[in-house]
């Protein structure tokens, strides 16, 4: 069977400081993977390796059985909040149209189909009224939605989102997570976040990344994962205070008060 993603013993270091070591996993199609871990733990690097934007020092990365950059139309990427400054001369519509570059005939420019897809994605994310606005005039949350619309305009089989909720307010976050849940019917989703509260009921597996990776094929956050992600706390206590309001679907397992894997 073909996996959406496969990694074999992948290592990556930056200026000879290891960032990721011995990463191996397979992700079947139509999964909804949440990648969590502390800031600086290598989450974004892992996402960029999956995208083919970085080359591993060692090991192999495959997307649908091939090197990632072979596909121009199968992966939609939503980068971490980018700020190009207020002045950058580009409209919302033109940013979303970038998502069509992999399919567009560059001499002819956008086809009717390209335009229809862009209009559709703008509507899906509630952006139809600001399609002509300059990107710099939008709020942080709106800009994030534009970047999601751009990734969806690719009409991808895989959507990779890096901290997509960072610019959004709470109601927007909930709405965004609902949209991702619906999209998961038709595509594989990889959500990178340091924020446990955005792991919604729709997530099918969770990967904890902190130099190494632990993949859990259930939408649960276990103490092991917290230990890997954030280091062991004192006396076996959870080092992170986890409070999530308004998401009654998820239950954290009870912490065991003894060292489980000493």
């Amino acid at each position: 069977m073909s996996y959406a993603f496969e990694m074999r013993d992948v290592c990556f270091s930056y200026n000879s400081v290891p960032v990721l070591e011995g990463i191996s996993f397979e992700l079947p199609e139509k999964e909804y993977l949440a990648i969590i871990g502390p800031n600086g733990g290598g989450k974004t690097t892992l996402a960029k390796l999956m995208l083919g934007l970085m080359e591993p020092d060692k090991g192999e990365v495959k997307v649908f059985g091939k090197p990632p950059l072979e596909f121009k139309t199968r992966i939609g990427y939503v980068p971490q909040y980018i700020d190009m400054g207020k002045g950058f001369p580009i409209s919302v519509y033109d940013v979303v149209m970038m998502g069509r570059l992999g399919r567009m005939n560059r001499l002819k420019g956008p086809s009717e189909e390209d335009k229809a897809v862009v209009d559709g994605k703008l509507e899906l994310l509630g952006l139809q009224d600001c399609r002509k606005s300059k990107m710099g005039e939008l709020s942080g949350g709106q800009r994030q939605r534009v970047l999601i619309a751009r990734a969806l305009a690719v009409e991808p089989d895989i959507l990779i989102l890096d901290e997509p909720t960072s610019g959004a307010d709470s109601p927007m976050q909930v709405k965004l997570l609902d949209v991702l849940g619906e999209l998961n019917d038709t595509m594989t989703i990889v959500l990178v976040t340091h924020d446990f509260s955005v792991i919604s009921k729709n997530v099918t597996s969770v990967a904890c990344v902190n130099r190494t990776m632990h993949l859990h094929k259930s939408p649960e956050i276990t103490k092991d994962m917290l230990d890997v992600a954030y280091g062991k706390g004192m006396d076996g206590q959870c080092p992170v205070e986890l409070i999530a309001h308004g998401i009654p679907h998820r239950v954290f397992p009870e912490h065991e008060n003894k060292e489980s894997d000493a």
């Binding site: 121009k72 990427y77 970038m98 998502g99 560059r106």
Partner: peptide, 21 residues
């Protein structure tokens, strides 16, 4: 010949790379 590619590169070179630019 390269207007859209240049725009995409200037705005977000990583996304442009994933689009085959």
């Amino acid at each position: 010949f390269n207007y859209r590619e240049l725009l995409a590169m200037s705005y977000d070179d990583e996304f442009a790379t994933t689009m085959g630019v």
